[in-house]
Simulated assay, not measured.
Amino acid sequence: MSSNAAMAEAASLVGDPARASMLNALMDGRALTATELAGVAGITAQTASGHLAKLSAAGLLAVERQGRHRYHRLATPAVARMLEAIMLVAGSLPPPAQPRRIGPADAAMRNARTCYDHLAGRLGVAIAEAMAARGQVELAPDGGAVTAAGVAFLEGFGIASQAEGSRRAFCRPCLDWSERRHHLAGGLGAALCTRCFELGWVKRVPQSRTVLVTRAGEAGLRQAFGIEFGG
Rank of each mutant, 00 (worst) to 15 (best):
K203C: 09
A128T: 01
G29F: 00
D142N: 09
R222D: 04
A6M: 14
A31L: 05
T44H: 04
S21C: 11
M131Y: 04
L88E: 12
L212V: 15
N4P: 13
R65G: 15
A78N: 05
R204I: 03
G165H: 10
A53E: 07
C171E: 02
A120F: 04
L199A: 02
G124R: 04
R70Y: 09
G187L: 03
A224Q: 11
A80C: 00
F170E: 05
V79I: 09
A191V: 00
L119W: 12
I102F: 03
V14L: 10
Y116Q: 04
A6N: 12
A31R: 13
A90L: 14
M1Y: 07
A152E: 10
P94A: 14
P206W: 03
G121Y: 01
A31V: 05
G59M: 07
P94S: 10
A130K: 15
V40K: 10
L212Y: 08
G91F: 12
R134Q: 00
S3L: 06
A148N: 02
L60M: 15
G39M: 06
H72E: 09
Y116I: 09
V205D: 07
F153P: 09
R122I: 00
A120G: 08
R73W: 04
A62Q: 03
A5I: 02
S3W: 04
G158I: 06
A34R: 08
S166D: 15
M82K: 02
L37K: 06
A133M: 04
A57L: 08
R101F: 12
P99G: 09
F157W: 02
A58E: 04
T33F: 13
E198I: 00
R113N: 14
V146K: 02
E228C: 08
N4Y: 05
I43R: 14
A18F: 07
A190S: 12
M82E: 04
D16Y: 03
V79N: 09
P77F: 02
A190M: 02
R19Y: 05
I127L: 06
M27I: 07
S166H: 11
G143Q: 02
E179T: 13
E228Y: 07
N24R: 04
V137F: 01
G189K: 00
R110E: 08
G39Y: 03
A108V: 01
R122N: 08
M1L: 14
G220S: 05
E64V: 15
T210C: 01
A185V: 07
W177A: 15
E84V: 13
M7T: 11
P95D: 08
Y71R: 10
G103I: 02
H69A: 06
M27C: 08
D106P: 10
K54Q: 11
A20W: 08
S161A: 01
S208F: 04
N24K: 14
R172L: 03
P95C: 04
T194R: 09
I127Y: 01
V14K: 06
G200Y: 09
Q162I: 03
A34N: 01
T210Q: 06
A128L: 01
A130C: 10
D117V: 10
H72D: 14
G91A: 10
P173K: 06
M131S: 11
V79P: 00
T214L: 01
A53Q: 11
L139A: 00
Y116F: 07
G91P: 10
L212T: 12
H118S: 09
M27S: 03
A224R: 00
